[in-house]
Every structure is written in C-alpha cells, then in structure tokens.
C-alpha cells in the first residue's frame, strides 16, 4: 500500500525461562498510523493463519494506564519516545527500511515466561510486604476529614502515577527496582494515612526487594528517563531518607 513503510523486525523468541532464546526476522509492510502492538497483532494473525505459534507478548488496556505491556525496543523499554508505554507507540516514529530489535524486559527477578512475556510477580511480592495502608472496616470516612495541602497531595499523586510496568528495572544497568519501590513508598509516606505504618513499610519493602534478586541502585537515572509515567528520582531520595529514619528511630529489630 502507498504510504506504508517497510521495516525489518528482529523479535526475540524463547520457549521458556530454561531454554536459550534467539531473534527471528519478520519483514513487514505497515501503515505509519498503526500502533506497535497492532503491527504485532497483524504478524500474529498471519502466523496463526499459517498454523504457526504466535509471538507471545503482553498487553491489556492499550491506553497506557495498566502497566501490562512492556517491550524493549531498540534497547529502550517502551521504545524511543519518552513518557509513553509500548501500547502508545506508533509506527510513524520509525523510518522506512529501519531494523527494529524487540526484546523482553531482562532481569534475574523477571524470568521469561515465553518470547516477550516476563513474570513480574516480584513487584507484587514487594507490594505485599508493605505497599498498602491498613484500614479498619466500618463507615466510609468523611471526605476532607484530614486536611492535606494541594502541593502535598499532588506530589503523592505524581508518585502514585506508577503503573508498575517494570520499565525502571528493565532500563537500569543493575536491574534495580528502586524507582518502583520509591514511588510506592512515597505515595503513602507523603500522606497522613500512610504515616502509622511508614517505618515498617519501608524496611519490609526494601528487605523483600533485596531478597528477590534485583540489583542495587547506583544513581544512573536511566529509570527516570525510561519511565512511561515520568516518576521522578526525587522519590528514590525520599526512599533513602525514609529508610535511614526507620532504621535509626524504630525499635523493631526484625528487619
């Protein structure tokens, strides 16, 4: 079709976490208006028509809010554009004749399930360790019963914009989950509702994060650059502060 572009896709195929993977080439003629995932859908339709296995990749909402999609495109999680998820990337951002490398998020803590799909349960385990507030059952509290300044609630909301996609882990040269953990700690530490459990929360979440095989943060800030939601590294500084305060002040010895 006229106006379409031709691209050569090199897509990672891997049967499961225990087998070695490799790239498979796909030459496609695609509309620049197509989204990246729609292009993969079309390839999969062709493969299924031929009776072959489709390429396994994850997606859900396809509007950048659920955090399910996540491909490393030409070495960058969620592709070359800033502050978008893979599902929001369109083929107009690629040149005719370009070679595009597609890889899964790579980290010891994110084993490959198949092809481009990885197991991100590790992030859920960190949240289970303390990324919540305990609320007693009963009547719904009155709105605005606890006054919170607009600045503070905005800052908490910016941290809460994290969709838990794991691009920070995928982009970090150390596969560290610090940006994710810092966003989850910050969104609660900034608000009065999060204060009763803040000491336990930060210690438990950091402990579980370390146990799950993520690397350590060395302040390269790749995570902030690749985060589809623009989560700031000031959250990591806050996480560090929360961690020292908890360690020095708390009398709980179990962490």
């Amino acid at each position: 079709m006229s106006g379409n572009i031709n691209v050569l896709l090199k897509i990672w195929h891997q049967k499961n976490a225990n087998t070695k993977g490799g790239f498979v080439d796909y030459k496609v003629n695609v509309s620049p208006d197509s989204s990246f995932l729609e292009m993969l859908d079309e390839i999969n339709n062709d493969l299924e028509r031929k009776g072959e296995d489709p390429i396994v990749f994850e997606s859900d909402c396809r509007e950048g809010i659920c955090g399910t999609c996540g491909l490393v495109i030409n070495g960058e999680p969620h592709g070359p554009l800033r502050k978008i998820a893979t599902c929001q990337l369109h083929m107009r951002n690629f040149k005719d004749g370009e070679t595009i490398w597609v890889e899964p998020f790579r980290a010891k803590a994110f084993p490959v399930i198949k092809d481009l799909m990885v197991d991100r349960t590790a992030l859920d385990k960190i949240l289970q360790a303390g990324g919540y507030v305990s609320v007693n059952t009963g009547g719904v509290p009155d709105a605005n019963a606890i006054p919170i300044s607009k600045d503070l609630s905005s800052e908490a909301f910016d941290a809460a914009a994290c969709i838990g996609c794991g691009a920070c882990v995928a982009s970090c040269k150390n596969a560290s989950a610090m940006l994710f953990v810092s966003a989850k700690v910050s969104q609660l530490a900034l608000l009065p509702q999060g204060h009763p459990e803040r000491s336990k929360r930060v210690q438990a979440m950091v402990m579980v994060m370390d146990e799950l095989g993520f690397g350590s943060c060395t302040n390269t800030y790749a995570c902030e650059a690749e985060c589809p939601k623009g989560i700031s590294i000031t959250n990591i500084a806050r996480l560090n502060r929360e961690f020292f305060n908890a360690k020095f002040k708390s009398s709980v010895l179990e962490y």
Partner: peptide
C-alpha cells in the same frame, strides 16, 4: 541481577 544482557543496548541514550 541481569544474567542475559540486551542485544541492543539503549543505556547510552538514558
């Protein structure tokens, strides 16, 4: 923490 590295390294860009 990353047993298998990326084939294309985007680290220079970020």
């Amino acid at each position: 923490a990353r047993p298998e590295n990326y084939t294309v390294k985007g680290i220079r860009k970020n």
